[in-house]
Design a binder for these strands. Structure first.
Lengths: 329, 329
DNA sequence: TATTGTTATGTAAACGCTTACATATTATTG
DNA sequence: CAATAATATGTAAGCGTTTACATAACAATA
């Protein structure tokens, strides 16, 4: 049932039907009623595709992330979707994984589908040359990154100051007497690097030396933390505190420490990152760094929305993380 | 840059350009090369909106769920997106929450945006009358439910046999000597009810009486489990085993038990549900029921895809859950 | 009443594509 | 080499809207 059929049934022109559907003024009350009756009777559903074609706007946002199953990303995506929905936009979700080719492919499709804007949820490569697809996309629609550092026309970013977040965590542990700290991380992402910088800076500020054996890369997930501690012990690294780049890694750390008969926080202190649900499920509960993912996501949405409305927007914003102290330290 | 401009630059008609873009045969190799060169030079991006309008298909699927932040739903959504992407479809994600009005609203928008099909991820009401929007939608596009029991034209469902899943859990606990079991659940959803049935059936099969004080509704999340145990103790309910409808609830149970000085599994056995990441983060690790969410999601995708291709598909399928035995029982 | 100004409605073009059909070109056959 | 078949290309309509512009209807003013 389209606008033509409605027009015929109601005995008016398609323009009038369109006006009624869009609540435009300048349509006589009686005509409006007549048309609305027909609309209701035949359960008219406007075709948003046709509308998008002429309006040159789809009211759809493309969101690229590596994997929604990561609770951190899921939170961001939730916030993005909910906030945009209030403004009449929908979200196309893309799980790109880590391969660049996938990201490129998804980006291409989003442009073909004419999304009005793109939000990248932690999915930016460190090497700028690998981000060509982002610059290309920004040529057609605004692009907003969560935790990315690209700059350029039509590119905006909102980052969490993870360097400071980790720095504060080091500071806290130091103040509680810890001198031998180890950092476990799983990804060389933008924020991953920032966290490592924070760890190093914190150590140095306290006169400690962040040796190569004290910053180690592990697999993602619980297993990563578990194996990480195994490796530390195997290599006979001494430590009284372990910091991680993710709560789940810290959960794995707790598990291995427990198996090894070490008490947390008595023998070893542990601090995670993200303030995720997992940090409440462990025993003891994890101390962690809240990197304000909702706040960041909300910021990204606001930025994109403003850009779409033609407002001037600063190309980059920053959110400050916060220490959450619980039982593990 | 559209098809007309390309046609002009290449000195051919728009039909020919269209043919080249769509790799249709019957275009002379030299013409193809000539057009392709222009396509490349001007970075032509086909407009999927225009294409959708004439093809009457958007290659887009609407996915409604209450909340992606729930790791169970996130897994389902991930699988749905990934599988459909392989077939050239994208996914619009909708977090409807629990209110019916939101679900209705989202459904309406999906129909306006002309999605080719809809998948409901655990978002069906128990009272049929509250699901009118689903029946209405099925009038226009195929609808597939994960864990829902609606039937009707153009409606398909794939469910996990959660009744049996919980039944097996009861059986296991019984075989390990437990006689006083308590069930904690958080939602009166379709699968929530099935689980309760399984618990009751299991108890009765073993000659036990599932009293009203042994099936209690709690808040969702870690807090729910925590407060649930508090309440049990306050009301002086005796138990040697606790089953829950979600792993996170079980995590809360473990936490409270630990605080109360009860050892798991020595004093109390605990079994969760979902086999989620959380079940690996607790100490001890949670025994749980794997309800095969990926398998279910993959099934839903296959069903919808087959329907879209005009195949005959059984209106309802079932997946069998599996006990995962770990340290908590 | 003729004139002007408002308000309501209609007509037709445009959005960017696909595709049925018509036509032009080339190859194949007797 | 003409007749026919096969292939390549072009033309135009249609997908379902919005909207600029034209026109009609009506009210207000001189």
């Amino acid at each position: 049932m389209n606008i033509y059929e409605i027009a015929k049934k109601a005995g008016v022109s398609i323009a009038t039907v369109s006006r009624v559907v869009n609540n435009s003024p300048n349509v006589k009350p009686e005509t409006r009623e007549k048309v609305e009756a027909v609309l209701k009777e035949f359960k008219y559903t406007p075709n948003a595709i046709a509308r998008s074609l002429v309006k040159r706007a789809t009211n759809t946002i493309g969101v690229l992330t590596s994997d929604v199953r990561d609770s951190y990303y899921a939170s961001a995506i939730y916030t993005i979707e909910q906030k945009f929905r209030k403004w009449g936009y929908n979200v196309i979700l893309c799980n790109t994984g880590l391969e660049i080719e996938n990201k490129r492919e998804y980006m291409k499709i989003m442009l073909q589908k004419k999304v009005d804007g793109i939000i990248l949820v932690g999915s930016v490569f460190r090497e700028k040359s690998n981000n060509k697809h982002i610059y290309d996309a920004a040529h057609q629609v605004p692009v907003v990154m969560l935790n990315g550092d690209l700059t350029g026309k039509n590119i905006y970013s909102i980052v969490c100051d993870d360097e400071t977040g980790t720095y504060k965590a080091v500071e806290l542990l130091f103040s509680r007497g810890h001198r031998k700290m180890v950092y476990l991380y799983d990804a060389d992402s933008f924020s991953g690097m920032a966290k490592i910088r924070g760890f190093k800076r914190g150590m140095k500020a306290k006169g400690l030396i962040p040796g190569s054996s004290s910053i180690i890369k592990v697999l993602p997930g619980v297993m990563g933390g578990y194996e990480g501690v195994e490796r530390l012990d195997r290599e006979d690294v001494k430590y009284t505190a372990i910091l991680t780049s993710e709560d789940v890694i810290a959960a794995g750390v707790l598990k291995k420490l427990k198996e090894a008969g070490k008490k947390v926080p008595r023998d070893v202190a542990v601090i995670g990152y993200n303030n995720s649900q997992v940090s409440l499920c462990t025993a003891p509960e994890l101390s962690t760094v809240d990197n304000k993912v909702e706040e960041m996501a909300a910021g990204a949405v606001q930025i994109l929305y403003d850009v779409l409305r033609g407002k001037d927007v600063p190309p980059s914003m920053m959110v400050t993380p916060e220490l959450v102290i619980r039982g593990s330290c």
